[in-house]
Structure formats: C-alpha cells, structure tokens
Design a binder for these strands. Structure first.
Lengths: 250, 250
DNA sequence: CCATGTGAAGGCCTTCACAGCC
DNA sequence: GGCTGTGAAGGCCTTCACATGG
C-alpha cells in the first residue's frame, strides 16, 4: 500500500505491475487463476467477466476492476481469452518462478501440510521439513527428509527457500520464525496461534483455525438470538453474504 | 453504529447482541479472547487497551472500538478486568454453549484436523467423522469413529452438530455440503477449493491454503521487482503491516 | 450490439483526537 | 492523571452506471 512497485521498465518483458494492486484483489486473482485453469481443461477459449465472476462468487464489476489492475487483456464485446489471462495472472502473482517452501513443525497439522498435494501441484514444492522431536527428525514424509530445526539456516540457504510455513506449537513459533528470518526467508505463513515479531521487510500471514470456528460459532449464536427474540425488526434477515476475514496480518 | 446497545431487556439471561457487530471485529474478538486466556493464566487481573492491543497486534483505538460493540466493560483510568472481559467475549461469540463439529473427509488434511487439539480444547468437540473410502470408514481417529458419508444426516441430527467442516477433494465437496445442509448444519468451514452453493441461511467460510501461498508469492515477486528497478521512489519502503484476507465468503 | 474498462458514489472499517469518568 | 468510549475524519474497497470500442 505504500510502495508503488514501479514497473519493470526496460526490456521486452516489461512487467506490468503498474501500481500497487490492492491486497484484496491479489487474493481474488489467485481464485480466478484456479478457475481459469479449470476452464482451460474444459476447452474453453474465452470467458466473459459475468461468467468468471459467477463461477468464483464475486460481482462482475469487481472482477473487471481486479483485472484492470494487471492490464487490459479483455476484448470488448467478447470477453477474456482464457489462456492469455491465465498466463498474465500467473506472471502477476510471481508464479512463473517456482518458490521453494520450508515447513517447520511436522506434528499433526504439519504432517498433513507436508503431504498436501495442493502445494507442489501449484508451484510450491516443499523443499525442506524441520522439527525438533528426535522421533521425527530423520524420517521421510512424502519422500522429504525431516531435518533438525537447528539446521534451518543452512538448509534453506542451500535450497533457495523463499517461503516458510510454521506449524509448531505456539510457544516454539517465535524462535522458529527468527531462524527462518535469519535464513533469509521473506514470507511466512503462520499456523501457530501467536503474534510473530518480524522485521518490516518480512511478510507474515496467519491462518488461525480456532478463530475460523469461533467466527462461525458467533453466527450460530446470532441466529439463535434472532429466533428467540422475534421482536422489533423482522430479525430473520438473511445472512448478507458477509465477507469473512480471518487471516490476520502479522 | 446505529442503535446504542440497549441493555438486556427482559429476564436475567438477556442476550446482548444488540445489532450487527462488524465481521472484522468478530474475528478480532476471537484473538483477544485467546490472549485474555493467557493473561488470566499468568495471573493478570486487569489489562489496558494499550497492553492488549500490543499483545494482539492491533491499534489500541481499534481494540477499544471493537470492545465497545459488546458493551462497556472497561474501567476508566484502569483498564479491563481480565476475567470479566473474557467471559463477555465468550458470551458474544456463543462459546458459552459447546458446538458440536462434524468433519467430512479424513484424508490428508482432514486427518490432521480430526486430531487437532486446538478444536476440542476450545469448545468445539469433533463429534463425528465421515468419509467414503472403505479403508477409512470404520477406523478410529483420536477415539472417534469414521462413518460413511451416507449417514451424515442421521448422525449429525443425533449428535446436535451445528458446524460442518469439509476437507474432501474439490469434486466431492458440493455433494457433501448438500448433505450437511440437509442435516440441519448452519455453518460450514470449507477447505475444498470450490465455491459452495448453499441456501442463504447457511454461513460458509472458506480456507484456501493455495491462495495463501500465492498471496505470499506475490509479495516475493513484488519485492524482487522493486529491487530490480531501483528507479523513482526509494523502493525499500517497509511492508506496511498489510491486512491479509484470504478467507473468502461463500 | 455486447462486454470491457473506469470515473464517481457509496459503504465499511480504521484511525484520530478528545470528552468523560474513575 | 490515566484510560476508556466515541464522534468525526479519512482510507480502502466495492458497487454502480456508462462511455468506449471491437
């Protein structure tokens, strides 16, 4: 939001990236990208904003505005060329280069993440696994060796890891985070229920499953309250397609 | 900010819940709640908005405004009583009643979620597990029997399930969702990478791990572009604690 | 004609700044 | 004196509506 990324000017491969794409838009671009992949598989050549918007659950005007941030790749009167748009979004999201991911903490959740095909299949090969538990260090998960947390710096540097995922218990998370930062990791996806302290240049996103459930619990409670008190306003008002947001900043 | 919260009218157990708490606030209340729990364990009696805000990574004014939606439980010149505030937030989020959760899909991710202690420990006991795989149906995970998806309606009704979690592959998700809805589930947490079609009264939140990584990848790419082009603005501008949001509405 | 791309309006949320109360 | 609670201002994002162009 500060920091207008200043387009890569010189050369034929001038990256668009014109000026700061809103965070909300970036998240949706990833969603559009997946749907475009599916459409391509189905043999579609073009999509209209209306179609793509409906398929991904957004308003078509919003979709067009989102796409306008990455340039004008639509054809008026026709729509968007599926393959070209797919390619442009990939470029914008930086998915034209693979990004090696390191996962720290292969307990319950971490083990599942290590085996999650949604990562490697989408350009995020899990390049390293770490834990402190002697029972885990040395084993292989999905063909990847689990190494000791103390080797984070060396291993991440060797394998060019750019993204770290933390799935340790809360109390261990900050120390692990510090290690990752020291190893030069620029972005961290944090599953531990703690606020990570990082230098400004490091980007953190937090996924908090307990918070997700609590937000849902709130909606259950709200509905019950509305049913119990039919008073005043006709309180059965439909859920207004609220915009959930539980991935918190650092 | 319409309608000043109007204290509980009739009866002792008058539900507060005045009028629509912003969605963003609800998510943060859950975060405050966890921190209040930790503070209570450490023996703290009161916290100031400044302390609680710093500990949870938000602005203190925002925190006070958030708390103002659930009523005035602070003491001017002092702060908030930890135990009382904890209790009020629990009430607001509907955590004073346990909510039974059903999890459909105990493959990779689902298996981890079934064993995730962060749920049961926070008032969300996993009351049922479902899958279609004959190798999985019949086994126990964490002491819970895996049942066949075809029994969703009966089992959920029997056990009073109010929240469903879908961790199936994408193509299976919609059918499972329909089953859960038929079983009377009001809220769904969806880990499958598809847009679920539900009746208005059902609330869906989506957690999409691939999207999370793609958003981070974007930031890596952005930073690289900025480094490659030292032009114009002194582009090392710090990442401004962006507000990630990747849990999407239905 | 039909669908994109976009200025302008509107809404929600955050931040400021200070009055009010302990 | 210190900290809460909140009107007001500001910013980001969404939505509308239409000019633009294939």
């Amino acid at each position: 939001m500060t920091l207008p990324p200043q387009a890569g000017p010189s050369g034929a491969a001038a990256a668009k990236l014109a000026r700061s794409i809103p965070e909300a838009t970036v998240a949706r671009l990833a969603v559009y990208l997946r749907m475009l992949g599916e459409l391509a598989e189905q043999g579609a050549e073009t999509v209209s904003s209306e179609e793509l918007a409906t398929a991904t659950g957004v308003n078509s005007a919003k979709l067009r505005k989102d796409l306008s941030y990455i340039g004008s790749y639509g054809i008026r009167g026709v729509g968007y060329e599926v393959a070209a748009l797919h390619h442009q979004i990939e470029r914008t999201l930086g998915l034209d280069h693979q990004q090696a991911v390191a996962l720290v903490g292969v307990g319950n959740l971490g083990h599942a993440l290590a085996g999650y095909s949604g990562f490697g299949g989408r350009g995020f090969p899990v390049a390293a696994l770490f834990d402190v538990d002697p029972d885990l260090v040395g084993i292989h998960i999905n063909g990847i060796l689990v190494e000791h947390v103390r080797d984070i710096a060396r291993v991440c540097a060797e394998r060019g890891v750019t993204i770290g995922m933390i799935a340790t218990p809360g109390p261990a998370a900050q120390a692990v985070c510090d290690q990752l930062v020291r190893a030069g990791v620029e972005c961290i996806l944090n599953f531990a229920p703690v606020l990570l302290q990082v230098p400004e240049q490091v980007e953190v996103r937090k996924v908090d499953l307990a918070v997700e459930l609590q937000v849902l619990a709130f909606h259950v409670a709200r509905r019950r309250a509305a049913e119990a008190a039919p008073g005043a306003n006709g309180a059965h008002g439909p859920v207004p397609a609220t915009n959930g947001s539980a991935v918190l900043p650092r």
